[in-house]
Amino acid sequence: MNLPRAHLLIVAAALLAAVAGFLVFRDAPPAAPTQQAVTLLPEPRPLPAFTLLDQHGAPIDEQALTGRWQLMFFGFTHCPDICPMTLQTLAAVRGRFDGPDQPGVVFVSIDPARDGPEMLGDYLAYYDPDIIGITGAEAAVAAFARALGVAVVMGEADAHGHYAVDHTTAVFLVDPQGRLAGLFRLPHRVDAMARDLERLLGARG
């Protein structure tokens, strides 16, 4: 006689708990926040001043990197593995956005002796003609890289005159005010980078 009633109570209590649980948790944020790919600086800082050349041979300075978010990285055209991968990734990230939200992509050659404007222009146009290429006098490029903490080690030339250039793989994030806002370390994934940029665009707007 009492047993079925006890069962009924248990069932009712369980139902109540389930409903309460649903009401409490349905609006709760997911337990673990989505992993960010970008490492933001505590405070954005101005880019080091520079006067270099773009891929059209025209002078370019830090003012050219304002007005939109920019993804900037350092590489060289004789780099057949990592540099194409990174350019491809950044061009794809850029392709996820339209209009003023679309980030710029900046490729700074750390091998300006081999990467003259024309070489750089042909190379970058293959990925996206809107990529800004930066080259120039070796000392000036090296100074700019150094000021950003980019480690560049020129390799010894082999018997064929070929040499590699060891370099930082981080992608630097420049904000629309032309300030260094953060950086993306490896691995560079299109989805994660695009998501972080969306978040930053949202925070700004």
């Binding site: 780099c79 593995d81 080690v153 064929h160 060891d166 930082t168 981080a170």
Partner: peptide
């Protein structure tokens, strides 16, 4: 090709090296 080498891309401490 002019010539071919066996290469390995190495990453250490945020830097990329091709050896």
């Amino acid at each position: 090709f002019d010539r071919i080498e066996l290469h390995q891309t190495l990453h250490d401490d945020g830097r990329m090296r091709m050896v």
